[in-house]
Design a protein around this nucleic acid. Sequence first.
RNA 1: GCCGAAGUGGCGGAAUCGGCAGACGCGGCGGACUCAAAAUCCGUUGAGGGCAACCUCGUGUGGGUUCAAGUCCCACCUUCGGCACCA
Length: 804
Amino acid sequence: MNTMRYDHRAVEAKWRQVWEERGYHEPDLDAAARPYYNLMMFPYPSAEGLHVGNVYAFTGADIHGRYKRMCGYDVFEPMGFDAFGIHSENYAIKIGDHPRTLIRRNVRNFRENQLKRIGARFDWAHQVNTTEPEYYRWTQWVFIRMFEQGLAYRKKAAVNWCPSCMTVLADEQVIADRCERCDALVTQRELDQWFFRITDYAERLHQNLDTIDWSEITKTAQRNWINRSEGALLRFQIDGRDDYLEVFTTRPDTIFGATYMVMAPEHPLVDELTASDRRDEVAAYRAQVRETTQEERVAEDRPKTGVDIGAHCVNPATGERIPIWIADYVLWGYGTGAIMAVPAHDERDFAFATTFGLPIREVISPDGESHELEAAYIGPGVMINSPPFDGTPSAEGMSKVTQHLAERGLGEPHIEYRLRDWCISRQRYWGPPIPMIHCKQCGPVPVPEEQLPVLLPDLENFAPDDSGRPPLARAEEWVNVPCPQCGAPARRDADVSDNFLCSAFYFLRYPSVGMDHVAWDPERTRRWLPVDMYIGGNEHACLHLMYTRFLTMALYDAGLVPFEEPFRKFRAHGLLAKDGAKMSKSKGNVVNPDELLDSMGADTLRLYLMFCGPFQQGGDWRDEGIAGMRRFVERLFNLVMEGEIVDTPVEGDLERVMHAAIRKVGEDLDGLRYNTAIAATMELSNAIRDSGVAQREAVETLLKLVAPLAPFVTEELWHALGHEGTIHDGPWPEYDPAKLVADTVDIPIQVKGKLRGTVTVPTGASEQEVLEAARSIPAVATQLEGKEIRKVIFLPGKLMNIVV
RNA sequence: GCCGAAGUGGCGGAAUCGGCAGACGCGGCGGACUCAAAAUCCGUUGAGGGCAACCUCGUGUGGGUUCAAGUCCCACCUUCGGCACCA
């Protein structure tokens, strides 16, 4: 063995202890001068332990925090546990344990054996655990605030029911009609549930996206989910009645082509409007639709079905009587649950009209002429067959038609959103009880604040059943309480709330952890919030991140927080794959972080994870690659520990490379481009090696550049070089732009755009000088022989292109 | 179907503004050290051709703009992610 072996175990243990004892990772929350709140999505402490995907995300976020610290900020980087939920409840049932014991064990394992080893600067004095009463008391407090603001309401509605999880799901938890957790086909059930009025905030949630500094990919997903669409509400008088059938359309300009109407089968007016001779047929169709699973209903290329109910509307534009149908391609729950069908200009209406032989009338024409339509024309054009609007461009027609109808009280402009209210109730055990009491006289009454938290009772049997009746309803002595308002016998709400409520405000709680009189201290909140940087996975774009923005806005409106957007910056990290494929237990291609922390050490693991690809795009893990990173760490170690450190000034090429590295690494860390930052530190390391000596200035600069990426070994070496304190408090090295310029420069010479050689000339050489030098290159001379130079493109210091 | 991201050596991936394609690393090959191997260090490594100086080709495909295109424009193919009968 000719080199000293770097003992990562001893070094990591030593510095972990020193950092903890000296409180390096605990900023003064009441007095910090340059507060920087560096947040990452807290994990779910599963029994399997920390996933390498978590390590990937946390490392990327931690590097950002460490870099900011070295740049002079007081960085607050808390960590916690999102530990309520079906996952651990199911697991507890499976192994016959109680979720509370299970979670305490898992949290301990996560924190002590895993999170504390990855080298992150977590402030453990401010940990949260959503399942502890001191936390969920505030979850309940938040619920009551929402109730007081009129943003929590109860409604009996068809909700998504997962027959396997035996609970309801929010719309956001249903992916292509399947439960996002267990993949079971979701059915619909009529249940009384609590909802939060997120739809009241649809416009703000949409509008603010233009003003916040978030990953574009995340904003796009949110825009998509909110699905704002501008159009009009139009009223069609029902033939023979005084009332109207209201529809939402984004194409009021096509109203002259509305040749029939379609209502959703679930529409309540269907009963009233159906002609007596159609009742049997309508009832049969509605029954059939009820039986149809959502999956079948949206299956591709499914032929259109529907029934003419024998009633008519008057088209307010043409005065025609047009038939009303019901069909399952019109959804109850979007818009008004009824549409005006314009087969000429809507693909779905076209398919339906073709199937049932309904008239198709062209009213928008790209060229102003009439055509035989083979398919719906959905593009722009001019209005035809639409007196008195003929010739009007369709874009203009939209507002003109709406205005025309509005004048007669038959419509108005309207913006519709796809976003629907957030269903909060869950018929499960392992969650925060909903702090409400149902009284026959007073209705739903909040639990008085001094009685919070409503403790989750210990149940022997907490398994759910298919009745829709929650497990807590079985705890009779817990459920039966007097009404806080009138004292009459009443019952607690026995549902628990959606876990996403727990995680929708945890970032507000972190700075105030330990204060049991207040959810979040106003002074600390003002100092530390909104969050400066939030890093997490984009899979939460429509769930956690949307709910959190909504809740923050609602709290802002209630005067409870002084800002309406919770996160100044959000960056979505990519996914870590392995050998080109997504990691999954079933494929058996998961990377075990514990083993690697043991065998390679935290620094090597951190560096290699970040080296696998651009952090915001994800990376591809290869087992063979990590050895190279370990070699890099050992080279750093040997650079300091093996040779002699020389105090001569750094000059010449090495000085230039060093300043270039300072610039490059700083810029890359700023942009979360950790893979190229690491490459740049390797280049500097290679340049020091090639220089033949280890000069103090160069070595110390290198250590500082590597410090946020590999905190342990750099701290060790920093002290080995005789320093006190910690390398991690900075300052970050500065570069001198003047030092980036070399005395001579290599200029590529192209002939007709093709590279033929390179000349080395003094920096600032003129076009003439470069051209002279270029002629002396054999390859260039050959190319120029017997030809006339037509033009010379010269970029001083960069390139010359000779055109012949 | 719509929206978004991306296609570059054997592999992961680099390449501010249109200006030397392949940084950095893995793997491979050759060498040093060693009895030998491992480890380490040094050299080399896009493909094809040539004794050589050099030449030709090359960033998913086909066109185009330009002195110059991985980068810009048009058309298309493939992969991944999101939404999806949302009127």
